[in-house]
């Protein structure tokens, strides 16, 4: 039982760390500010979420787990607000987003 929980926690930590890195890579690769924000939001959702889930499984039913949940709730509620404020300020500044051509066919990865 405890080995099962530990391995789930290890997988969760591994995936969370990888998603954090993906956010960082996207921050370097994306062409303009608005698209970079999309990459950074991976770090802020799946990266944070999975890492905290991994720690939560390690902590078990303690007050530490409650604090981890509080950290999660904080990121969950505050980070979109910060992103929105940033995007809005950039738009007010007339920072033009790079947009796709209208005629182009749909993009499939």
């Amino acid at each position: 039982m405890s080995t099962l929980v530990e391995s789930i926690s290890a997988i969760s930590l591994l995936l969370g760390a990888l998603f954090c890195c993906v956010g960082g890579i996207g921050l370097m690769r994306m062409p303009d500010f608005y698209t970079r924000m999309h990459a950074a939001s991976i770090t802020e959702t799946l990266g944070v979420g999975l890492t905290l889930l991994g720690l939560l499984l390690l902590a078990g039913w303690t007050l530490v787990a409650v604090k981890l949940l509080m950290v999660g709730a904080l990121v969950f509620f505050v980070s979109p607000t910060a992103s929105h404020a940033l995007a809005r300020a950039a738009m007010t500044c007339r920072l033009k987003p790079v947009l796709a051509d209208v005629g182009e066919t749909t993009s499939k990865p």
Binding site: R29, M30, T45
Partner: peptide, 18 residues
């Protein structure tokens, strides 16, 4: 998030921002 991850890691960077 999985969709965006694939696009970030894809060599051709298939995005079409709107």
């Amino acid at each position: 998030a999985w969709d965006v991850t694939r696009r970030v890691l894809h060599p051709a960077l298939p995005i079409s921002p709107v």
